[in-house]
Design a protein around this nucleic acid. Structure first.
Length: 201
DNA sequence: CTATGATCATCC
DNA sequence: GGATGATCATAG
């Protein structure tokens, strides 16, 4: 499936309730009393007619699907609820590749971002807010993302992989993320400010 | 058991 | 309330 075609199909979902669609597609949102964290993505994959095992952001052809949740602030305004995981950090790759060659840049360039409204931990309903075909077209944003990448790169080279913390970066941050229980792997995350720019809030 | 995306828990 | 660090579900 081409990226553009996927985007057209995704835009059909705007304004719809993913919770209802989940029931329609037979996707389990709650297993016992625990949330299936991948449910929203699965609903979307089903809508596109994709196999359900492509959740690991492989190359679904020539593009990549990302989900972000939004929340309402007290005055009813929509804001970005969480940072967005972009891709794992491979210290070797980061050291050896420039920003333009990096996995981070490639992923950002090919991403289709689906923003959904998070109504609460119970996920009783979740409306699709908008679908964004993200391009790193804004020059100032591009430069800042590149600067953040370079900061991570220099830190790994001069202080080592373990010196990275989530405090670094302006738009992109390196953050711990593993299977839990002591893993030390890290990933690039888009800060909420960045996600805000991406989605166009 | 490990990798990955997405979300939760805790700190300030 | 927002940011940082850690965990959960699922697939291989």
């Amino acid at each position: 499936m081409e990226r553009h075609e996927a985007q057209l199909k995704l835009s059909e979902l705007v304004g719809q309730d993913l919770r209802q669609l989940a029931g329609q597609y037979g996707i389990t949102v709650w297993k016992d009393k625990k949330l299936n964290k991948g449910w929203a993505g699965q609903v979307i994959e089903r809508h596109l007619g994709l196999p359900l095992n492509s959740s690991r952001a492989p190359n679904l052809g020539s593009w990549e699907l990302k989900l972000v949740s939004l929340k309402r602030s007290p005055n009813g305004e929509l804001k970005v609820k969480e940072t967005m995981a972009i891709t794992m950090i491979d210290p070797v790759e980061v050291c050896n590749k420039s920003f333009e060659e990096s996995h981070l840049f490639r992923k950002l360039s090919k991403a289709l971002i689906v923003a959904r409204v998070y109504e609460g931990p119970d996920e009783q309903k979740s409306i699709v807010y908008k679908v964004t075909d993200f391009q790193l077209s804004d020059q100032s944003v591009y430069e800042q993302v590149k600067a953040d990448y370079e900061l991570v790169r220099q830190t790994i080279i001069t202080q080592g992989f373990s010196a990275l913390t989530g405090k670094m970066g302006v738009l992109i941050q390196p953050r711990t993320k593993g299977p839990g229980h002591g893993s030390t792997s890290r990933a690039f995350y888009a800060r909420t400010n960045f996600v805000k720019k991406i989605v166009g809030l």
